[in-house]
Nucleic acid binder design. Sequence first.
DNA 1: GCTGAGTTTGCAATCGGTTGCACTCTTGTG
DNA 2: CACAAGAGTGCAACCGATTGCAAACTCAGC
Lengths: 334, 334
Amino acid sequence: MPATIRDVARLAGVSPSTVSRALSLPDVVNPATRARVRAAAEQLGYEPNRAARGLITGRTGNIGLVVPDLANPFFPSVVKGVQARARLHDVAVFLADTDEDAAAEAGLVRALAKQVDGLILCSPRATEEELAAVARETNVVLVNRLVEGVPAVTFDNEGGMRQAIAHLVALGHRRIAWVGGPKASWSSAHRIIGLYAAARDHGVKLVDVGDFAPTYEGGMAAADQVVATGATAVVAYNDLIAIGLLARLHTRGISVPGDLSVVGIDGIAMARMSRPALTTVRLPKQKAGEIAVELLLAVLDDPDPDTIIATRGKLHGELIVRDSTGVAPDPARP
Amino acid sequence: MPATIRDVARLAGVSPSTVSRALSLPDVVNPATRARVRAAAEQLGYEPNRAARGLITGRTGNIGLVVPDLANPFFPSVVKGVQARARLHDVAVFLADTDEDAAAEAGLVRALAKQVDGLILCSPRATEEELAAVARETNVVLVNRLVEGVPAVTFDNEGGMRQAIAHLVALGHRRIAWVGGPKASWSSAHRIIGLYAAARDHGVKLVDVGDFAPTYEGGMAAADQVVATGATAVVAYNDLIAIGLLARLHTRGISVPGDLSVVGIDGIAMARMSRPALTTVRLPKQKAGEIAVELLLAVLDDPDPDTIIATRGKLHGELIVRDSTGVAPDPARP
DNA sequence: GCTGAGTTTGCAATCGGTTGCACTCTTGTG
DNA sequence: CACAAGAGTGCAACCGATTGCAAACTCAGC
């Protein structure tokens, strides 16, 4: 039912090839013809059939986006960024959610790969080898993960942790606990590195209470161990864990920030709404999605390996101080 | 680079047409040949090219999903449901977020429509006429919206409101405020109808404080008006608004549920995490996404108008009682 | 042994675009 | 004025599948 290139050609009195050129290579056709073709296309509401074009060009005009779990508010933000930027470039986005399942992730990636020009993998849980393998056969951009030779946009974890520690140290904290995220999480591993570096520089003690699910429940589970460390402040892998901590601490009657200061990471909307409002390192999530699209599109246009390797984005976080952090309790008091 | 149907044909010693049939119409080809073809396809890792198939069949194997705002936790849940179910049927999902902009919505829908077999529109902000028009030229399933002659999956708003009111009445509340959502929201309009009906049945007074943005800020903005009504309980259009109410009420030193009980709607994860934990009507959001996919696929398989009109799903919500509701304050007390 | 029905398979057209090549028609140059 | 270069356009092949139609083959029945 929709108009084809032949309909336009007939109406404009030219051949289909001229229509094709008038629309996609404007400078090789006579301005007068071009205008005539454009008018005909307009009148018929002609839009090239993507499948047909894709068949010959090998390009689908689609990109795939894979995230571990949409229920974690971190990811919808990234998705929004990808969405918005892709639309600007007239590229459609296939979305897939792996439910934090590394096996499902691999299958999904392979299935998606065949239907798109490139993939954006956000916080993938797969191993480096698997990712490198995928990147070899498909155009891939990683978000929040770094693998040798694969374009990526990451967050400056070290810088973020440095800000958090500096803030806590300024408030007088000298013993700080760390609640880690999933073992397979690249960013968890890198945050702890930044944290230790910052702690060393400031001469404060860091206590690692282990790895937890990056969820509210994970935070609830971690809370008692945090308290047992005797730390006066805690940094959590993400805001969801931090909010879980807040809840359990409240239940136990431990005052935040009176007895214990809590810092999250991510800067999800919910952090503002918790009680007390959560001090956090806000990551430019949406921006990350936007840049990932730009990177991917750049790679598609110029698949030169050297360019690809240089294609990197590193985004800086920003410490947002709210009510969950305060001066360290006087050690003499109890 | 990937194997084509011709490669498989050559390896199996048959013609491409036989390969096509062996793979998609198994019973019209000789079992022996079929096995040979299957083996060859397997060996080559052959997967039919979707663009090529789409060109001839007119089917893309893709569906589109349009939501107003991924930042509202309601929608990621629906998206997850759609996702999961679509994958089961080997259908890919295009996602678009309109940023709550009705104009953008129209454009997006039209753009998406050409690349997919059908669309799922979740809580669309467009007018009935626009939606009916879209439904006439594309296969559409609505979620959380009802338009004459268009398949839809909705929530039982009346029933949900009835449960909420019954709960509040049992707690002794006799004057209940309602904080509405966006004017263009179909569900807001229908929730208020259910609310009034339930209030009448129970002989309690309902006070409408007006329409607000379906956000935390919207709830903060509504709080003072709620207090001014003198109501002892308030029902909010959604959980986000309810959580905003909680925050502002806390700031003003108004106790929840001591002075005022608060009920939300949606049952987002965040509701459990608020302080006090929010009593809410939990809607089966993910289920709605799953059913929407089933409905859409059914419509695609059988585009008979009579079937289409009968294609409806209505999901029931469930009252989750938490700490934000309690017995009405003694009127004599102040 | 021949005919006809029923199976199984291949040929070739087709979907809707894009693009290499060749052809026509200007226009500029010697 | 002839000729070459260049611009503009059309022809036809092609991308990778599906499918109507016809050919080839099998097999039963007479």
